[in-house]
Structures are given as structure tokens and as C-alpha cells.
Amino acid sequence: MALLEIHDLHVYYGNIEALKGISLEADPGQIAAILGGNGAGKTTTLRTISGLLRPRSGSITYGGKSLIGMEAHLIVAMGLSHVPEGRRIFGILTVEENLNLGGYLIRSDRKLVSERKASAYALFPRLAERRTQLAGTLSGGEQQMLAIGRALMSGPKVLMLDEPSLGLSPILARSVLKTVRQIANQGTAVLLVEQNARQALAIADRAYVIEVGRVVLEGEAATLAGDERVQKAYLGGFEAVGTG
């Protein structure tokens, strides 16, 4: 049994069915990539898992326990952390205060908070240089680092990332995804939503391709990267052909 199991998830916005029966899994130390175009339901899937949206039916189990109907802040306490689309850092707070809020649930254990902050700063040394700066004044890449660092403060077993490379330069995007791989290698289960399918497949173990609310393809990341349909739809024509 996987650590996080989502089975036949149906989510509606009013009368519109956004997820039409999504099933997926995430395991410790592994990256599961969720690929798909705009409006496919990738963000909706993550928001439902983290409790910001309520599914109409289906199951979400984490370590054998159901997360359905549980409030978002309690789901964080269970060990699931979500880096939302657009980063959503608190721009009016400093970098340090943002990290403190990431450690909100462990706030009474000051030692643990400073240990986790130290490892966030070790992972992203740029943040350490800017710790007293207002987060709103950071560059896009730094904000993404802060969003990931902040999500790690709660010590998650499952880390969900929504488009971490969005708006970043190709070099920065690669470096952020490399860090994501490092985080997974330390034993965290990662759910990675990405538009940048090529880079996502390069670091992921498994992948799910979602189209209009359904999983249309799933499998080993390496296999999917070679799949003709994936190459055509998400990896762009000639380069994929050229590299064989």
C-alpha cells in the first residue's frame, strides 16, 4: 500500500465537474509527476488533497487514514505540505517570518524551529542572505525557494508542489527541480505538478498525465518520456524526435 493513495476522486466547481475520477499514489523517496495542460485538473487535485477543496466522492488515504472532510490545517499536521500555485508567500512579512509560519505547528518547540530554519537556509543559502528582507521584495526564484523552504518547516512526509518552475529562467527552474529531487531522496514523498513535462519527467519516478479531469496515461517516468503520445502532446515535436 502506498503512503498516499487517491482513488476515484470527483470534484465539482458548482455544477462543473473538474475532476472525473482521479486515482494516483505517492510513496516515500519517490517523485510522482502530474502532467497536463491548462485546466486539466492538476491544481484542483492538489487543492483537494490538502483540504482546500471538498471532493464530492472518492477517497484520499494517507498512511491508511482517510483525509476526506478534514480541515486543511489538520492535514498539514498529519504531515502533508502543499506549495501552492503562484507560491503565495506572505509578501508583507520577512523571509524569516515566512519560515516561522511554515513552522507554525511546531512553534512551541523553539529548538526544532531553529533547526528546521537552519536546514532551510542550508538548502537555499540565498534565503539566509535575505532573512530580514520583506518576502515581497524577493525575485521570483527566491520566492519559489522561500515557498519550498516554508513548506518543509512542518517536516512533511508528503510534499506537494504546484508548478515550482513557473516563471523561472531555465537555469533556475533546473536548479529548483534538482533540489526537489534532493528532498525526495531524503525520504519525502513528492507530488509534483508541472507544465514543464520534460524536466519533470527527468527527475520523477512515476508520472500521471491528466486531461480534462481524468488520468489518461500513467507509468514509470522513463517509460512515459519515451511514449509517443506524451512526446507529441507535452514534449514538443522535433527535439524529442531528434534525441530519439
Binding site: 482546500l52 486543511a72 490545517h73 498539514v76 502543499h82 506572505f90 508583507i92 509560519l101 507554525y104 512542518s154
Partner: peptide
């Protein structure tokens, strides 16, 4: 102070 800006992001911090 964070709630003055973003309720959902605050929820995701476990607040």
C-alpha cells in the same frame, strides 16, 4: 498579520 493577506496560504501553514 499573514491572515490580512492570504487565508488559504495560512491554512496551508497549518494555521
Amino acid at each position: 498579520r499573514a491572515l490580512a493577506v492570504d487565508h488559504d496560504a495560512a491554512r496551508l501553514m497549518g494555521i
